[in-house]
Design a protein around this nucleic acid. Structure first.
Lengths: 211, 211
DNA sequence: ACCTGAACACCGTTCAAGT
DNA sequence: ACCTGAACACCGTTCAAGT
C-alpha cells in the first residue's frame, strides 16, 4: 500500500475542465498549438480520452469561444439606450481582444448560450430605443458586423509585422493609405465608427437604397 | 522515339498557375481540402515542388485571397461619393461571397496589391466627400470592418445548419432573437447597415464619446 | 460511465539529389 | 533554375479493450 504511487489526486475529467484548459492553452500558446494531443497532455490524459466528452475538435473551439462571451457581464436594463448598446458592443470587443485567438475563430456560428444571451441583450437595448421589425434587425446586424470586423482587423494588424513601414515604402502608389494607415488609435477608431452607426440608425438611413 | 510517351505538354509550373489552381480548388472542394499535396496533385506535380515557388502554405492562402480582390473592378472617380463608396464596398462583398472560403481566411493582413488598390480607392472616395484626418480614417475603418463582418456572418450562417429552427425552440429564453433572427434578407440588411454608416459619417457622430 | 493504446490515413515542411 | 523522393515530426479520429 505505502509503496504504491500515491494515486494521483487528479480531478476527474469533465467538459468544464476541458474548456477551461483549452482557453488557457489558447491564451498561452496560440491557436496553432491547440491540438487534441497537446490539450490532453495538459489535462494529464490521453488524447483519445477527450473524445468521450467531445465529439470533435471543433466542439472544443465552439465551447472556448462561447466561454469568452461568458466573461462579459450582461448589461442591466434601463438608462440611455445608446449607452447600453455601447456597453454590450464594447464588452464584446474587450473580451475578444483579451483572447486574440478568438478573432481567428469568429467564422463559426455564435450559437452558444453566452453568445445568445448577449445577442438577445443587444436586441433588447435596440428595442428599448423604439426600433422594431427589419429596422431593429438591420441595426443589430450592423453593430454585430462592426465589432466582429473591428476585432479581426485589429488582431491581424497587430499580429503581423510592420505594415506601416511596408506602406511607407509604397507611398507613391498608395498615398492616402500611407498617410492614414499608420499610427492607429484603435480605440478611437472604434468609438468613432460606433458613433457613426448610432447616429445613422437614429437619423433615418432607411433602406439605404442607392439613389 | 515514337514509342516514348508523348512528353506531357504540361505547362511549366508558375506562381500564377499555382494561385489560379488554388482558387479553383478552394471553390470546388472547400478550404479543408486545400492541401499542398492535393494542390500539387491537381497541378500534376509533387507536393514538394510547390515549395520552390512558395515559401509556405500560408503564402498560397494570401495569394488566393488577394486574387479574389483582383476580381473587383476599381471604381472610376467622380460622381456621387456615396455611390462610389457603395460601389467599392458592395464589390468587395460580392467577390467575397462568390468565394465563401474567403470568409474563413479574412483573419490575415490584406496587404496584397489588389487589396491595397481597393483600400486606396475607398480612401479616395471618402476623401472626395471632404473627409480628412482621423475622421477619414475612422470612416474607412468602419466601412471595412462592416463588410468583413457582414461576409463572415453571412457565410457562417448559411454554412451551418438550421439556426432558425434552433432559435424557434428556444423562443422562451431568446424572444427577440427568435422573432428576428429568422428569414434573413442579407442583401437588405447589408444595404441598411451601409446606409446607417453613410448617414452617420455625414451627420457628425464626431469622436463618438459616451455622454 | 469513463478511460486507454494501438492504429489509420492523413498533414506541412526539409533536404539531399537529380536535370 | 527548376523539379523529385524519401523522410521527419506531427495531425484528427476510430475502435477494440479495459475498469
Amino acid at each position: 500500500m505505502w509503496l504504491r504511487p500515491p494515486r494521483e489526486p487528479r480531478q476527474t475529467l469533465s467538459l468544464g475542465r476541458i474548456v477551461a484548459e483549452a482557453v488557457a492553452l489558447l491564451d498561452e500558446e496560440g491557436v496553432a498549438r491547440l491540438t487534441m494531443r497537446r490539450l490532453a497532455e495538459r489535462l494529464g490524459t490521453g488524447s483519445t480520452t477527450l473524445y468521450w466528452h467531445v465529439k470533435t475538435k471543433d466542439d472544443v473551439l465552439d465551447l472556448a469561444l462561447d466561454a469568452v462571451f461568458g466573461e462579459v457581464p450582461l448589461p442591466d436594463a434601463g438608462g440611455d439606450w445608446r449607452e447600453r448598446v455601447r456597453e454590450v458592443i464594447g464588452g464584446w470587443r474587450a473580451a475578444l481582444l483579451r483572447h486574440p485567438w478568438s478573432a481567428t475563430i469568429l467564422d463559426r456560428p455564435l450559437m452558444g448560450p453566452h453568445a445568445l444571451d448577449h445577442t438577445e441583450a443587444l436586441y433588447a437595448a435596440l428595442a428599448a430605443a423604439g426600433l422594431e421589425g427589419p429596422r431593429l434587425k438591420a441595426a443589430a446586424y450592423s453593430l454585430a458586423n462592426f465589432v466582429m470586423g473591428s476585432v479581426i482587423m485589429q488582431v491581424t494588424a497587430e499580429g503581423h509585422g510592420d505594415a506601416a513601414a511596408f506602406l511607407r515604402e509604397r507611398a507613391a502608389r498608395y498615398p492616402l493609405l500611407a498617410r492614414h494607415g499608420l499610427d492607429c488609435d484603435w480605440d478611437a477608431a472604434f468609438a468613432d465608427g460606433l458613433g457613426f452607426l448610432l447616429t445613422g440608425m437614429r437619423d433615418g438611413g432607411g433602406t439605404g437604397a442607392p439613389t
